[in-house]
Nucleic acid binder design. Structure first.
Lengths: 159, 159
DNA sequence: CCATTATGGTTGTAATATACAACCATAATG
DNA sequence: CATTATGGTTGTATATTACAACCATAATGG
């Protein structure tokens, strides 16, 4: 009983420490790094979502990225300016905007994709082969538990 | 052989997807959320590093946080202004600044700690008990592999 | 069929996190 | 003692993001 308590405390500390280090390590994907073709990770993600579906509405995109619609506009903007994405009016809702890859967009996306893919392979390779399944699965669990417990207004804000 | 290739590709995709979702889920800790006592997660971390060591130099802190020294100054600043931290000159190096918790700082830290601790317990609880060890371990592996493969100037920037 | 409400998107404004460069003071080195 | 290195701050700039206000169009419900 006593031991359980101690171990639970230790576990919480580990969790906290892991979260801190995760945030630091994941920083590579957020600010600093223009990957290749001068795109950020998020911009690459946007291209990849559009590529995957052929044509994507802004509203779908802001759901995928989990950001405000205004932020979506601002993230997409440079991609349009650089000529990688094209905006067209949706057929069934004249308010909605559809995103498409341009010819150049496709080419650039292919490049970045290779680049990111190299990265992922590298990363995958530095995880011992027999652990890979576990790692992914654990990450899934971790993410789910974070999402479950961090509903806005709940925990930590209850006070 | 063929199957292996396919599975490796799938694995990379999973990794990519997991990274994206991690970034989104961890956002709670970064911008939005003032936890309690109007502190951000990073500010809480700073208090906790100082509390742990009793007195901490700025240079040690920017190593712990993995940020530029100028950023450290700016993160610490509000905590000093709010009267939670005190800066003193180091005894053995008159250039160096030591951080200490004030009385108020200690009280506030205690509060936030309880708050964060609740959060961690919640989070821990939403991970099935028999998976907890695995999750932590996998996260450790994941972090290590990210740090190993993302050295600045390496992968993705090679081109 | 029109009035109200909801939705999709953009723009204005602001906060935060962060880096890099320039700088000052003090230490360390040779 | 001259040069170089280190600890910290301040100036400046960029990216990410939110919220609020707004416009246009859609949907709903008397």
């Amino acid at each position: 009983m006593y031991i359980t308590t101690i171990m639970e405390t230790a576990y919480d500390k580990q969790l906290l420490s892991v979260i801190r280090r995760l945030i630091i390590s994941l920083r590579v994907f957020q600010t600093e790094s223009k990957f290749c073709e001068d795109l950020t990770f998020t911009q690459y993600s946007i291209l990849s979502y559009v590529a995957r579906t052929g044509s994507l509405e802004m509203s779908a995109l802001h759901t995928l990225l989990s950001v405000e619609k205004s932020t979506t506009t601002r993230l997409v903007d440079p991609l349009v300016k650089m000529g990688y994405l094209k905006k067209t009016q949706s057929a069934h809702d004249s308010r909605a905007v559809e995103l498409h890859l341009t010819g150049r967009g496709k080419a650039v996306f292919k490049n970045v994709q290779d680049c990111i893919s190299d990265f992922m392979v590298d990363m995958g390779n530095s995880i011992p082969e027999n652990k890979r399944e576990d790692v992914i699965q654990s990450l899934e669990i971790f993410i789910r538990s974070m999402d479950r417990c961090c509903n806005p207004g709940e925990c930590c804000k209850k006070q």
